[in-house]
C-alpha cells in the first residue's frame, strides 16, 4: 500500500487505541482532555483518509497539476 494509506492506518490505530484507553482505564482528567483534544480529530481525519475514494494511478499526476495543464 502506498505511503498515504500506511500513515493513515498508523494514525487511525493509535487514535482509536488511545480513545479506548481513556474510556476503559479512566486516567486522570488532564490526560483525558489531552487525549480527546488531540486524538478525536486525528481519528476522524485518518478515518477519512482511509475511506476516501482514490482515482486511477495514471490520472493522479494530471489532477494534481490541473491549474497548469487546464481541463
Amino acid at each position: 500500500m502506498d505511503k498515504l494509506k500506511a500513515v493513515s492506518w498508523f494514525i487511525f490505530v493509535i487514535s482509536v487505541a488511545s480513545i479506548l484507553y481513556a474510556l476503559i482505564i479512566n486516567p486522570p482528567n488532564w490526560i483525558v482532555y489531552a487525549i480527546s483534544i488531540v486524538f478525536i480529530p486525528l481519528s476522524i481525519l485518518s478515518f477519512g483518509l482511509l475511506s476516501m475514494a482514490r482515482g486511477k494511478k495514471e490520472e493522479e499526476e494530471d489532477k494534481r497539476k490541473e491549474p497548469f495543464i487546464g481541463y
Binding site: 483534544i37 488531540v38 478525536i40 480529530p41 486525528l42 476522524i44 481525519l45 478515518f47 477519512g48 475511506s51 476516501m52 475514494a53 482514490r54 482515482g55 493522479e60 489532477k63 494534481r64 497539476k65 490541473e66 491549474p67
Partner: peptide, 26 residues
C-alpha cells in the same frame, strides 16, 4: 464527502494544507 475522491493540489503547502483542517476540529 468522506467517501469522495480528494486530490491534493500540487501547489498546496503540505502538510499544512491538511493539518489546518485538523486544527479546526481540534
Amino acid at each position: 464527502f468522506f467517501l469522495k475522491e480528494s486530490a491534493f493540489p500540487k501547489t498546496a503547502a503540505m502538510p499544512f494544507y491538511i493539518a489546518i483542517t485538523a486544527m479546526l476540529c481540534v
